[in-house]
Nucleic acid binder design. Sequence first.
DNA 1: GTTAATACCTGTTCGC
DNA 2: TGCGAACAGGTATTAA
Length: 284
Amino acid sequence: MPELPEVETVRRGLIPIMEGQVLSRVVARRPDLRFPIPDGFGQQLTGRRVVRLDRRAKYLLIHFDSGVVLIWHLGMSGRVLIFERDPPPEEKHDHIIFETESGAVVRFNDTRRYGFVDLVDGDALDTYPMIAKLGPEPLDDSFDGAALALRLKNRKTPIKAALLDQSVVAGLGNIYVSEALHRAGISPRRLAGTVQGGRAVKLIVAIKQVLRDAIAAGGSSLRDHRQPNGELGYFQHSFVVYDRAGQPCPRCDHGGDHGGDCGGVIQQIVQSGRSTFFCSACQR
DNA sequence: GTTAATACCTGTTCGC
DNA sequence: TGCGAACAGGTATTAA
């Protein structure tokens, strides 16, 4: 699940638990996730104080008083569990354990192990390869229709694939790309290079709306349901097109003259190996 | 340089 | 009911 909004929800949930706290114990329970866990991972973080939790695209960045930054990617199945006290027994895929001096426990559970952690000096963060090649943050005010159009110009690949490319725009995943394209009324098959001018404006507006709505939903889930299992970042969120193949297109309110009812049915196709959901009646 | 296919790993769902 | 196949929300690497 973790795309930008879920990672942001995790960040916000972790701030009251970790920020300003000294970590009393940090343990990696296996030597690797997607990549090897760096040597001395636990030793480097134990006894250090967390000074700030940031996010870049789908990466959590935890800054420590030693100047070290923990780069943390949740991968595809990564989940963050928080227990302010009395944690239950560790489970099978709880790979990394953080404990704070105030007694809270944070666990990184990742079934498929596509997630990873790494440690880097804060001064070297911007040159860390996976961070360095990221495109703009979609929620930055400076990232507007013109900026998006420029990055899509001359691209021959379908817009669906271009938006999944983290160097074009950083933080979108398979779900929110389908949702944003639907909201913008743009076909996922349209060549990226043809999304220019007004279409690009519509698309960037839709992307920002979809992400902001999802972050808001995550935020309310943090406040409203303190989940007994401590799970963070997963929340009830209804998608308009994602995983709704065969259902009537539920909302076509992105202008046009169909008056909010296009009569279409959500279709599922495969593009570069990934499922795409869209309505061919109102996405062009 | 750009684009598509492949690999990584485990759990769940689907179809026969 | 059982069992293998297909599929799942990400990204680095390889091949074309």
